[in-house]
Amino acid sequence: MDQAFVEQLVKWLEIYGFGGAVLLLFVLCAEMLMRWKEGKSPWSKEGLDSLLLFFTVGPFIETLFINGLLIAGLSPFYALTPLRIEVTWWTLPLYFLAGEFAFYWFHRVGHELRLCWADHSIHHSASTYDFTVNLRFSPFQALYRLPLWAPLVLLGFNPLVLVLMATTVPAFQTFCHTTRIGRLSPWFEWLFVSPCNHGVHHACNPLYLDKNYGGLLMIWDHVFGTYQRMEDDVPPVFGITHPLETSNPIKVILHEFIPLFRDFRAAPTLGQKFGVLFGRPGETFELPRPVASGLKAGEADMVVEPAE
């Protein structure tokens, strides 16, 4: 292992982060300007909520503290394994693909396990799909990244480089949270995350649920059968199947944890309690939830009713 090269790479990824922050500022300012041009308030209420969430759990807690803990948590696995995938210029494409793979599975589990969805749904809770959604961080991601990424570390991937690849490269999605851009070139839509196919990911229409988990590339979605193109005759409805009616950041963070806890307590059998935690959202034991009064006509049928 070339420690000097790893240190250099970490430095470059930090520089990438600095540059990315300037580009994030650009898209946020552009969003405000276009909203103003459309006769709206420059910041939507949801956008302000997202900003509040960003400053409470965003760059410092998520990016520095949580990822630091994650790297520290993965390091013992690296010490356990005799396997090593050297970090050199020649293995960086492999690390890039492994980072995408790690991101894909963390993201998929974030949607398909109720316990993890309780956290990840925070990012999806906005009913608008614009650049401010970038700011809606989920604070507990590292907790499920750790067990999911440990096998890759046991295969010999350097945890520091893996975590940095899997968390910084998908920052490209920053430019995809917008409804103003239509379909890009077909090859681009097939290979890369784009405003259209990431829009599918943020939609709660039954056709679009749990699709398009890719970070920068869509290849793992093609491999695992979760790719879905945006269909012209199915306009996306953005948000979650149980829409939020609050802007209180504490309530936004806890909005899925509270029903999760309530359902766990109420589930009559141990198997059902296990299902509440590790089952697929919408398919586990659930107490009835009130349908949000703010739902538009036609959206109410998208609210997933209790399965049991």
């Binding site: 650009f26 300012c29 552009a30 300007l33 276009m34 909203r35 041009k37 459309e38 409804t179 103003r180 851009i181 239509g182 379909r183 890009l184």
Partner: peptide, 24 residues
């Protein structure tokens, strides 16, 4: 790029982007 791929309903709003892009 935004102008090239803008949805028809967003073209009017996106007209402000070139000037903003230059200034930014």
């Amino acid at each position: 790029i935004a102008r090239r791929f803008a949805k028809p309903e967003s073209r009017e709003a996106i007209k402000v982007l070139p000037l903003f892009n230059v200034v930014f």
